[in-house]
Structure formats: C-alpha cells, structure tokens
Amino acid sequence: MTDEAPYVHPLADVQTLRIGPRTRVWQFVVILPGATIGEDCNICSHCFVENDVIVGDRVTVKSGVQLWDGLRLEDDVFVGPNVTFTNDRFPRSRDHSVAFQQTVVRRGASIGGGATILPSVEIGERAMVGAGAVVTRSVPARAIVVGNPARVIGQVEGSKAYEAD
C-alpha cells in the first residue's frame, strides 16, 4: 500500500472501484459496485454500503452502520456506531415499485451512536444529532437535536455546542 492508495482490509468485500486515496476500509465491510467513497475516509468494521450511496471526503462511519440506496454524506461527516438510516417510509417485502427516497447529511454534521434517521430528511451543515435520537424531520444547520422524535435543544456556535435555555 502506498501512502496515497486506499487501504482495504483483506476480510472486506469491496466491489466498487470508486474509493478515494487515503481511505481505510476495515474487516467485514461490504461495499457494492455502484457506491462512491471519497478521500481520507474511515469505514469501520461491520458496515454495509449499497450501490446508490455517495460518501464525501474525510467521512468517518463507525462500526455497525448500513448506508442504503439514496444516502448522501457530504464532506467531514461523522456517523457514530450503530446509526440506522432508512430509505423507505412504507416498506413492504419484495415491493420495489418506488424509487428510494434521498437522505442528505450536510458538511460537518455529526450523528451520535444508535440514532435512527428516517428517509428523505436533511441533516443541516454542522448539525449534531444526539445518541439514540430518532430523526423524523429535517434538522436545521448547526442545530443540536435529541430525543424521540428528535427536537432542537441547542445550537453549534463556532466549534462549541450550546444548549438552549
């Protein structure tokens, strides 16, 4: 491995050719052929990435996360362990009649471990989703959201987070 080449663990199943330099893909990760993974990313063990997924640069995806069709992660996004993304509001077994809904996580946003993100929402730039939150609607830029359903409790100012009074 050169310093620029992506690292793919021998126990990973990476079918895409679109992986940026300095990206690390760890053991037991499956990435389907249509996916695009940016530069300098870290895809931790036990993750799954479907075909219609775009991951930006410098993104961290912690263990136990599945990235389903229609998901867009912009640059510098953090996805905590066991975050659940969904792409169909009314799922049925073997019903492939609808296009999957797009979910976008904007630049610099962070999603805490165990959060659930429903389809077709947008998580705004530099927003923070608390661990275990259930995001049922879009999150404004720089908002801090927690709970089920997720509600705004504060704001990210510069590099610090502040809770609302």
Score class of each variant (00 low, 15 high):
V79Y: 06
V79A: 02
P33T: 00
G38C: 08
F85I: 14
S63R: 10
V83Y: 03
V104S: 05
S63D: 12
N148F: 00
S45W: 01
R94C: 07
N148I: 05
G56L: 13
V77I: 10
D75S: 07
S110V: 07
T36S: 15
V30W: 04
Y162R: 11
E74W: 01
A161H: 00
I43V: 15
D69T: 11
R58T: 01
G64L: 11
A161E: 04
A127F: 00
S97C: 10
V30N: 13
T136V: 14
N82I: 00
L71N: 09
S97M: 09
I31K: 03
V139Q: 07
H46L: 10
D57C: 02
R89H: 15
E122K: 00
I144S: 04
G114H: 09
R106F: 01
V29L: 01
N42E: 14
C44M: 15
K160T: 15
V55C: 06
V146H: 03
P33M: 10
V121R: 09
V146E: 03
M128G: 08
D95Y: 07
G130K: 09
D40Q: 12
W68K: 14
T23E: 05
A141I: 00
P21M: 03
A141F: 00
K62F: 07
V129D: 06
R106K: 14
S120P: 00
R142C: 02
V121E: 12
V53R: 06
R89A: 14
F85H: 13
G112C: 14
V129I: 15
P149K: 03
D88L: 13
V145D: 03
N82L: 02
S45G: 13
N148S: 15
G108L: 06
F100E: 09
V25S: 04
V121W: 01
A131Q: 07
R24K: 15
E157W: 03
Q102R: 13
T136F: 02
V53F: 04
T103W: 03
C44S: 14
T136N: 07
